[in-house]
């Protein structure tokens, strides 16, 4: 019996496992870096719009509203963050940190958008604040997320701001308190209206957001 071959095969197999583990981790790290870089770009965009807004006031609403492309960038960031959550886990410290930064960017974009829309009549976006939990206490949140993702894909100008209700972030807690959102999730705020709770399917959401009819869709119009 040549036991040496058994040991060598074991070492090689272990090395293959270690390599697979290393590559998978490196790619996850690259994903985190990718999200950080996108977040940096978005925060610069927000800062730029804020500065532009302060410089011009309401004098040039056309120029300001044309620069509002952040919604799609935030949406892309959300789907990237979702992949990172799946790979690294929802309790991973890097994921939680990225999520906090993402939520802050959302809040900043939301506030800026509201400021601009108050002064510029040609910029009246349709927006939804969506509060969810992925801690296992909201079985319907995944389904509500799918409804909103579908709406967001169908109506690219619909601005959906999704927030993890349980995220330990003072700014988010303040937003939750201001909008009087309790922990009966999923919770949805459309425009400036009252909070609605529970799963709302596609047709219910379309009724909740009558403004959708004014938005362009990605599907061709039927004449």
């Amino acid at each position: 019996m040549n036991w040496q071959r058994y040991i060598i095969a074991f070492v090689i197999t272990g090395a293959i496992f270690a390599t697979a583990f290393y590559i998978a981790n490196r790619l996850d790290a690259a994903r985190v870096a990718d999200i950080q870089s996108t977040q940096t770009a978005i925060s610069i965009d927000i800062l730029s719009t804020e500065t532009q807004f302060e410089l011009l006031g309401s004098l040039d609403c056309e120029a300001i509203s044309q620069g509002q492309t952040l919604s799609s960038e935030l949406s892309d960031l959300a789907s990237r963050l979702s992949v990172a959550e799946q790979n690294l886990g929802i309790n991973n410290t890097q994921v939680v940190s990225l999520k906090k930064q993402y939520s802050l960017l959302e809040i900043k974009d939301y506030l800026l958008m509201r400021q601009i829309s108050a002064r510029c009549r040609n910029f009246q976006p349709v927006y939804v604040l969506y509060f969810y939990s992925n801690s296992g206490d909201c079985p319907q949140c995944t389904q509500e997320g799918e409804v909103l993702t579908y709406l967001r894909t169908t109506y690219p100008d619909l601005r959906v701001y999704a927030f993890d209700y349980n995220l330990d972030l003072p700014a988010l807690k303040t937003l939750i308190a201001l909008r009087r959102v309790d922990d009966t999730l999923p919770a949805i705020v459309v425009q400036n209206r009252a909070v609605v709770y529970g799963l709302k399917d596609l047709s219910a959401m379309q009724k909740l957001i009558p403004e959708l009819k004014t938005l362009a869709t990605t599907t061709p119009e039927v004449h």
Binding site: I16, F17, T19, A20, F21, I23, L27, R80, N87
Partner: peptide, 15 residues
């Protein structure tokens, strides 16, 4: 590439 499944399991199955 970001959306590819690059977990450890994927690499092991490929191997």
């Amino acid at each position: 590439w970001y959306y590819l499944n690059t977990g450890m399991l994927t690499f092991l199955i490929i191997t």
